[in-house]
């Protein structure tokens, strides 16, 4: 047990370190973006004094290294900074906190990801086990062909096909998934049914195929033959003998796909006009709103790190060699 705790703590520390490096890369990447925010927001006509004053207000007059440490230091105090847009220099007065901008969007994204995960992860694992159980049967081939098709189709295309059938031809689900905080849970679930379906189809294939492959690779182990020779049925072999040893690879691929649900859904969000964090980030990049872009990137990176950490932990606790040392 002590071994496990220390392993997890080590991974956690490593994760934080990775995040620090990522923050540096994000910051460097932002500095390489062409154009200047103040120039972009104030327009060609702005006088040099106005631009200089505005640059001073948002801190762009400082050297990059100072700005980096200011930014990271603030994050450690839980402060993601203030958005560039809406500052007084632009003639407006309602500059918003980045955290305040991101929070509702992030919660929308997590809602969509959560619902998708609740449906797709159990479904993918079940299908993976069943296809392994009935390997090379018609069922297996059909599922494999179907999932290969969905994995090979771009996500926006899957989205449009679903809109065509369910939104337009049969009109059972709404084509637009514009939710807001005032709606009831039921209403929100109804609104996001098409994006959830799209995302399920996109990530199902990968998880299901990996589950199937992990189980099938174990079926060649001597202990599986031993189980067979002690009279275990094919079902027992898959569920009792192979699955307990396959959690680590399955957890890894699930983590990878869940990360995609947070980080890679921007295309699907745009298609369904869903107010998620992906859209927010794309808008922020267009308007050179650097604090927002940086915060989004950092959240994405943290998502990857946390999910992978969880997959590692599952790998550890399902490995009897680590759980019960000699």
């Amino acid at each position: 047990m002590q071994l496990i705790v220390s392993t997890i703590l080590r991974r956690l520390a490593l994760g934080l370190f990775t995040l620090l490096i990522v923050s540096f890369i994000i910051f460097g990447g932002m500095s390489l973006l062409p154009g200047d925010f103040s120039q972009a927001i104030l327009g060609q006509a702005a006088t040099e004094e106005t631009v200089a004053a505005f640059r001073k207000e948002i801190g762009l007059d400082q050297p990059a290294i100072t700005r980096y440490f200011n930014w990271v230091g603030a994050i450690f105090q839980g402060n993601l900074g203030t958005s560039f847009s809406g500052r007084s220099g632009t003639g407006q007065t309602q500059a918003r906190e980045v955290a305040e901008l991101i929070a509702p969007r992030l919660s929308n994204t997590l809602f969509l990801a959560g619902v998708t995960a609740l449906i797709s992860v159990p479904l993918a694992i079940m299908l993976g086990l069943l296809t392994a159980l009935y390997r090379n049967s018609v069922f297996d081939r059909t599922i494999n062909a179907a999932t290969l098709t969905t994995i090979a189709t771009p996500d926006f295309f899957v989205a449009y096909i679903l809109i065509l059938f369910f939104g337009s031809l049969w009109q059972v689900f709404p084509s637009l998934a514009n939710v807001d905080a005032t709606m009831s849970l039921g209403e929100r679930l109804y609104r996001i049914s098409l994006p959830v379906m799209t995302l399920c189809l996109v990530i199902l294939a990968h998880m299901m195929r990996m589950t199937r492959a992990a189980i099938i690779s174990l079926l060649a182990s001597p202990y599986i033959e031993m189980a067979r020779l002690s009279g275990a049925s094919q079902r027992e072999i898959i569920f009792k003998h192979a699955l307990p040893n396959a959690w680590a690879p399955i957890a890894t691929v699930v983590a990878f796909n869940l990360a995609y649900l947070v980080v890679g859904v921007v295309v699907v969000e745009v298609v369904f006009v869903y107010p998620g964090i992906g859209q927010l980030m794309v808008d922020a990049v267009t308007s050179r709103d650097i604090p927002v872009v940086q915060a989004c990137c950092l959240i994405f990176a943290a998502t990857y790190i946390i999910l992978n950490l969880m997959a590692d932990i599952i790998g550890i606790v399902t490995n009897p060699r680590l759980l019960h040392p000699r």
Partner: peptide
């Protein structure tokens, strides 16, 4: 199998489910 006819494998280390 396993009840009336039993099998003892060569590598016990690999033949027990970990």
């Amino acid at each position: 199998w396993g009840t009336r006819i039993a099998y003892v494998a060569q590598s016990a280390a690999a033949s027990f489910n970990p």
